[in-house]
């Protein structure tokens, strides 16, 4: 690993960290996917996790997911917080019996030597009210710092996971800061080069953080967003209904679970934006979360009627 050139080295470059994790999980039989092409709040929202966690079919995937949490924007002024950041997501269904060892192997691969680093699994149960999902697991600590979330999914979209999938989420920026020994996200070396050719995380994202913070907190068009929420909700329902198996047909599969789920994702992100703009009261907040969850549940139910969800073609 130390023999890697700096631009590929997980301890020297942000991209090296991503590439190393991808390679490691590819060796464990994961399909290495690309980020989902929609705005999401976390890697879990990618259909490769949310939907693929449902149904009996085995599934192994890993991918980077840019994640947006509008409320976490700090105009680029906080060294530890971003409204847009990267998660590295791994899902293995069913979870192999040695998933903890595989995870520790991935830390070894990115240069965390367990002979000198104190790695611990500290209770942290995971729940996503918007996805109607929960699981048990840990936050994984390295020398007192949370570097990953490790979850055994028990329920997704209101359905029991059978079999259970194991999900790993690495907070890439935080992990890279530790590996590179820098105190601010913006100082991360992105490409591993030095001098004129060095590109930092700040070079790539600082302007975006400033602009999006302004957008998220001050200017996002709330009227449009409220409309988009209603539209996405209606479209989701419409596609779900249109995709229902035709009565009298031999084919009992649902035909449009994925397009419907896209609208659920959209509604969720629009809600996060509205929340950041501060135009949703506490009581309304709960009801918006419930509305998204209802969509997620309906999409999960539809997915279970598709081939990917385990129905024979």
């Amino acid at each position: 690993m130390t023999s890697e050139p700096a631009h590929m080295n997980p301890a020297r470059s942000f991209q090296g960290l991503i590439l190393t994790l991808q390679r490691y999980w590819a060796e464990q039989g994961c399909v290495i996917l690309q980020p989902y092409d929609m705005e999401v709040g976390a890697g879990t929202f990618h259909p490769a996790t949310t939907l693929r966690a449902l149904g009996p079919k085995p599934w192994r995937a890993a991918y980077v997911q840019p994640s947006r949490r509008p409320k976490d924007g700090r105009y680029g002024e906080n060294p530890n917080r971003l409204q847009h950041y990267y998660q590295f997501q791994v899902i293995l269904k069913p979870n192999p019996p040695n998933l903890q060892e595989l995870y520790l192997g991935s830390l070894e691969a990115i240069g965390i030597d367990t002979a000198v680093h104190d790695v611990r699994f500290v209770e942290d149960d995971w729940e996503s009210p918007t996805l109607g999902a929960w699981g048990l697991g840990w936050e994984c600590w390295c020398d007192g710092m949370e570097v990953s979330q490790f979850t055994y999914f028990q329920q997704v979209a209101g359905f029991e996971c059978s079999p259970v999938a194991g999900e790993l989420t690495y907070g890439l920026e935080r992990l890279a800061m530790y590996l590179q020994g820098v105190e601010s996200i913006y100082d991360l070396n992105f490409n591993g080069l030095e001098g004129d050719r060095k590109v930092t995380y700040g070079d790539v994202f600082l302007q975006a953080e400033q602009e999006y913070s302004r957008h998220n907190f001050e200017y996002a068009d709330t009227e449009m967003l409220f409309r988009h929420f209603r539209d996405a909700e209606a479209a989701c329902r419409k596609y779900l209904e249109a995709g229902e198996p035709r009565s009298g047909s031999n084919d009992s599969r649902h035909l449009m679970a994925l397009p419907a789920y896209d609208q659920c994702i959209k509604a969720s992100h629009v809600f996060n934006l509205l929340d950041a703009r501060g135009v949703i009261s506490v009581t309304e907040r709960q009801s918006y979360i419930l509305r998204v969850r209802e969509l997620a549940k309906a999409c999960g139910a539809a997915w279970l009627k598709t081939e990917g969800g385990g129905v024979a073609a």
């Binding site: 009996p56 069913p94 979870n95 192999p96 019996p97 149960d125 699981g135 048990l136 055994y152 028990q154 996971c161 059978s162 079999p163 259970v164 194991g166």
Partner: peptide, 10 residues
């Protein structure tokens, strides 16, 4: 709180 896991949880 308890959980299921692995292939057996199918």
């Amino acid at each position: 709180k308890s959980m299921r896991w692995g292939a057996a949880s199918a």
